[in-house]
């Protein structure tokens, strides 16, 4: 335990020196050329004439053939060296050194997690591209389903023959200690699309969800004193009566409060996810998703109406939309 902590501290000390460090550069082995573009387009099934048809390209806004923008880092990929070749052992740069460091400390797993490309201009035939790499950031150690690991952000900057930046790429990898035991994966998780979590149902709430299934938004009403209550309870807090009846809501109300959820993103929900606290015209409040708002339209006091809709997996839920 103590030695583990010591080794971790030692690794992190070394990692600090890596942040901001040069991680090597890769000059493209070939100038931007029609042959590679043709192979790329064939594989991708991209028939846009500006990439291959000189005549069509000349008459386009580009004025000549350009390379597909997503090829940006394909140009600077180092040539393939077969592992049995002696050259393989020598083919190292800063980034590979950093990866070797992680391996020495037991972070033997590696997985690519993010690939964010920014394009400044289209590349033209004859452009000579060089990529330079910088270690932009290394995260703290994080527990992940694969095991404990560090995220490494390497920024590639692509420059042309005039040393002008033509694009950049953020490539994020994670180095991790493979977890001792494989994480249990239920067969359901593998075989089906994740869906929203269904409401647990019991004596005190199943009738309300059955109403939703029939397309009705219900409110519990005390049969003795007439008080409306939501969420439902088995007894009236005002008069202690156990008698109640469902009353159908007209479904109109106003946004009393809301939140827009960004993190964490739970499988089965779409984000950003708007959750509203809606004050129904009958007087009770209810939590539900608000959908169909124009940007900037969502605010406290917005008049909304309920729509009962089926979601992925077949469950029905109330949604609120701005009243039109």
């Amino acid at each position: 335990m103590a030695t583990d902590a010591k080794r971790k501290a030692e690794l992190e000390e070394k990692l600090r020196d890596w942040v901001g460090a040069d991680a090597g550069s890769c000059p493209a082995p070939d100038v931007v050329n029609g042959q590679m573009i043709r192979h790329w387009c064939a594989v991708m099934g991209d028939s846009n004439p500006v990439y291959q048809d000189a005549e069509a390209a000349k008459n386009s806004i580009h004025g000549g053939i350009v390379a597909p923008p997503a090829m940006m880092n394909a140009w600077t990929m180092p040539p393939f060296v077969p592992p049995w070749d002696d050259l393989a052992a020598e083919a190292t740069d800063g980034e590979q050194e950093l990866h070797q460091l992680f391996e020495q400390y037991g972070y033997t797993g590696v997985v690519g997690t993010d690939h964010d490309m920014e394009i400044r201009r289209y590349l033209r035939l004859g452009d000579e591209i060089t990529a330079s790499k910088v270690v932009e950031a290394i995260s703290e150690e994080k527990p992940t389903p694969l095991g404990l690991g560090y995220f490494i952000d390497v920024r590639w900057i692509f420059r042309d023959q005039n040393d002008e930046e033509v694009g950049s790429l953020l490539f994020r990898t994670m180095r991790y200690q493979p977890a001792q035991e494989a994480m249990p994966v239920s067969s359901a998780a593998v075989s089906s699309v994740p869906t929203r979590l269904p409401p647990p149902k019991g004596h005190d709430n199943a009738w309300w969800w059955e109403g939703i299934d029939r397309g009705e938004l219900l409110i519990q009403k005390c049969s003795a004193c007439g008080v409306l209550r939501h969420p439902p309870r088995p007894m009236c807090g005002e008069c202690q009566s156990l008698d109640w009846e469902p009353e159908a809501s007209a479904g109109s109300g106003t946004v009393y409060s809301f939140t827009v959820l960004h993190h964490p993103q739970v499988p089965g929900y779409e984000y950003p996810l708007v959750v509203g606290l809606i004050e129904l015209d009958e007087g009770t409040r209810i939590v539900a998703n608000v959908v169909g708002c124009e940007p900037g339209e969502l605010q406290i006091g917005l008049v909304v109406e309920a729509h009962i809709e089926k979601v992925e997996g077949g469950m029905k839920l109330p949604f609120f939309r701005p009243a039109r």
Binding site: P199, K201, G202, D204, N205, L317
Partner: peptide
């Protein structure tokens, strides 16, 4: 707690921050 959470789970209101 299950019934209490039934009013929030389907709508994604799942976390203390939310």
């Amino acid at each position: 707690d299950l019934i209490h959470w039934s009013w929030y789970l389907p709508f994604g209101l799942l976390t203390p921050a939310s």
